[in-house]
Nucleic acid binder design. Structure first.
Lengths: 342, 342
DNA sequence: CCTCTTAGCGAAAACGTTTGTGCAACGCCT
DNA sequence: AGGCGTTGCACAAACGTTTTCGCTAAGAGG
């Protein structure tokens, strides 16, 4: 009872007493060019409809060497930032009649490696990946396959695939400059995974702005080593213990900011009167927080869409996408988590 | 240069001067049972390693009639609630060596229908779907295919597939009772899509609690018709305009609560002094909101995991999963968005 | 009546696997 | 020497498509 064996080209052909090729051609709109009579075409279409025929895409893909599928590898889909990217990719893929195979690498490089292999087995036509970022060795293997790949958000060290990322340096620079303009001088930052490009760029932007303003960076004030909430919490605890305490903190990720807020709160302090905070990434809730969060908003939708489109072009052209990095601008959205000193 | 044609069973066989079947058997660990000599097996394995052989899962699936893939259809992956489910499903799938094909139905039934079709073409072995919920007609077609399907969160009208949902009625009852205990009597609610089971159940729980407390439900105080943020906003605006104004509002979704907060804020009012608010769904940010949100927390992880596991069992057993609905308990997390009247 | 088009379709190979069956060659027993 | 069991592998079909090539029959032209 379970499987009434879906109809196939063959079964349709058999019922009509014709050959599978004829059925295939009509159903693919090649009836005219192959001189299938209108009568036959009619019959085929009717029968297909009646039986609810759906072509087996496995067989089709095998034959055509085209799967119309792209892989999407994401460190954690439940992170709103990545979720937004995934959403946009899914929408774009649908528009182009592509399917997407999703893997959640759980922020672990080992899982990421495994995911890449799995997707290779499925012969996806292209790969979109937000790398965990610690290492990029395993991407070498992928490269040999000749399947296009586009990296999103974080570029792992030693990886020169085409990428789509936010303008991290610019964003961080804007944020830091803003803090400086507000009169802050002891500005700390809680960074993410230090080896990732996005982190490095943000750090660079931070340093650059500090330097331009002629204020020395106190190295004890740059803390953190992962993008997770816990790291934000620990980082902020450490910073609050420092003396003199920094007057402003720049958190390099949404989860980091969240953890930082938890630490501040736990200490009985308030933002921004006791300490100012700026985050990276925006989200709908930011507006309603106890201290509405000033943050460097990334355009997740653009990230998702642009990356899919670059990949799609590469797939269609048969060429790997241009190695160049595509930068999506960020915008500083000013809310109320930064205190102004005059 | 693009495609150096990945190695196949055949190519390995040719190089070694043996037959593809032998290669297949060794690589599948059936060497012993098929009396392939150790020498041959050695040679095969080495060659496979050297060429970086990866079996073509399309061909494999075609032959085996097993794709080791499940479809996941979600109304909006960027919604934290669904994102959490997706994450958990992805993790569970990986543990069972299953791949997942993702579709975002964009909260539109038409897209959902299309997604189902697409996934059927791919011959996924099972389907997990969080339905948009307006209608369940199109699920009938799926049923004929004999492929197991599990519905998550919302059960559309007239759909009797196995499902995994939160204990919506219980959760809503708890929340309403809590409001009553706090002394509220004029309690409004902003509902989501009225035809969905989750909405109906929440509404039922609300009514039940009200009735049990002997307070009449004022029908003008139940507003709303979608789960989107905008609906929450409009709903709250309407409620704030009512006279006498309700003292408490129960929003049936996370986005609804968000929209409601926006409306309150815009009106220059505060939660909970001017109006109390309870939400449905929990999220990490709730703690840090201006008025830390009291909410009925759903166990998204359990929802995701349980649904995958039910599906997996159905797949393995060859039977469709039990029609019964699996209920995941909710917990009321009390924060500070509800004012207590004595 | 013979050839040439052209319309209309079928046969078969191929994509890369898996698997049931067949079949040599070898050793062993009687 | 003949029979038998075992070892070690090859052949071929099948999964459901797509596509190249070619075939037949009818009509047109001479």
């Amino acid at each position: 009872m379970s499987s009434p064996t879906r109809p196939t080209l063959k079964s349709i052909a058999r019922r009509l007493g014709i050959s599978p090729s004829t059925v295939s051609r009509t159903l693919n709109g090649q009836g005219k060019s192959n001189r299938i009579s209108d009568a036959t075409q009619q019959a085929v279409r009717e029968m297909a409809l009646e039986l609810g025929f759906a072509p087996n895409r496995l067989a089709r893909s095998l034959r055509l060497k085209k799967t119309a599928t792209v892989g999407l590898v994401i460190p954690d889909v439940s992170n709103p930032f990545f979720a937004a990217i995934a959403h946009e990719v899914a929408v774009a893929a649908r528009e182009h009649h592509y399917s997407i195979a999703l893997c959640d690498s759980q922020e672990e490089t080992a899982v990421e490696v495994e995911s890449l292999e799995s997707l290779a087995h499925w012969h996806v036509e292209g790969l979109l990946v937000c790398p965990v970022g610690e290492s990029g060795e395993h991407f070498r293997d992928w490269e040999r396959g000749g399947t296009p790949l586009v990296v999103i958000d974080r570029v792992p060290p030693g990886c020169d695939f085409p990428s789509v990322t936010s303008d991290n340096r610019g964003g961080a620079k804007d944020a830091t400059r803003y803090l400086l303009e507000c009169g802050h001088r002891r500005i700390a930052c809680i960074q993410g995974i230090p080896t990732t490009s996005s982190n490095e760029e943000r750090l660079a932007g931070y340093r650059e702005a500090m330097e331009a303003a002629g204020v020395q960076v106190d190295e004890r004030l740059v803390v953190g080593e992962s993008f997770l909430e816990e790291a934000g919490y620990c980082g902020m605890r450490k910073l609050l213990g420092a003396k003199p305490r920094p007057t402003a903190v720049f958190a390099f990720g949404n989860l980091l900011a969240l953890g930082a807020m938890r630490a501040v709160r736990e200490r009985g302090l308030t933002i921004p009167s006791d300490v100012s905070l700026i985050g990276f990434d925006d989200y709908p809730y930011a507006d309603h927080l106890a201290a509405p969060l000033t943050t460097v908003a990334q355009d997740c939708r653009a990230l998702g869409r642009r990356s899919f489109e670059r990949l799609y072009e590469a797939i269609c052209s048969g060429q790997p996408a241009e190695r160049a990095c595509c930068r999506v601008p960020t915008t500083l959205v000013r809310r109320e988590s930064v205190r102004s000193w005059e």
